[in-house]
Design a protein around this nucleic acid. Structure first.
Lengths: 111, 111
DNA sequence: ACTTACGGTAAGTTATGACTAACCGAATGC
DNA sequence: GCATTCGGTTAGTCATAACTTACCGTAAGT
């Protein structure tokens, strides 16, 4: 039996951290609307281009965006599956078997 | 015409920030399993009680938990509606009318 | 009344993360 | 070849946020 605790452990921590920052969330939303180059993204946000590059790195590490080299420029695009990870986490919060198990334990402890 | 941008603005920013911190997310998960007092929560997490108190404050401000005074102790409980706000944000990312509008603008700009 | 458990608040420290400026390599155009 | 555009990386600064210790009010127990 594989340990479900380990499987479920923190697949969305990076996603939450990535989306928590206002600038980074804005960048992500911009990319949801349309894939763009780094410079194009930088124009839509009040920070420098290197800052955008660093944010894109974090978004990429979190699986929220993809990169495709297109000549000299890198086109970033939002990844639906990235937010799916987070959605599944939210869905599993109350319905997770761990919750059921925990409640079961609680009931046992009460007697 | 009311500005939908303003209506939609940042209802989940506080939620994302609250859940982004590992300790705070752990506390929230613990409360999902079962409502607990502050001291009880503090036992499940490797930080001091005042730290837990501060985290609970943030979770409360984000609408993720509720408090009910019970004698001398404060019982905190996870709030399902709190995460619903975040889920709605995720759902609306691609289906939002703003996306459709933005794409419409893009097409217009291309001619 | 005194004591004890509970918990929020304040002040101060420390760590982390967001940002800029400067630098560098790589691909394109002349 | 040279200049230019694009973009990732580094070093360093600054702000914020997480944490602890100390303190104070409040509600219950004796």
């Amino acid at each position: 039996m594989t340990n479900r605790m380990l499987d479920t452990q923190d697949p969305c921590g990076a996603v939450l951290i990535a989306l928590a920052d206002p600038t980074r969330r804005r960048i992500f939303e911009v990319l949801v609307h349309k894939p763009r180059s780094v410079a194009a993204v930088a124009q839509t946000v009040p920070v420098s281009r290197p800052a955008v590059s660093q944010h894109l790195r974090q978004l990429s590490d979190a699986g929220l965006v993809t990169v495709t080299k297109e000549g000299t420029r890198n086109i970033y695009a939002a990844r639906r599956e990235g937010v799916e990870v987070l959605r599944r986490y939210l869905d599993g919060l109350w319905s997770d078997v761990l919750t059921a198990f925990a409640e079961h334990v609680e009931l046992k402890e009460q007697k």
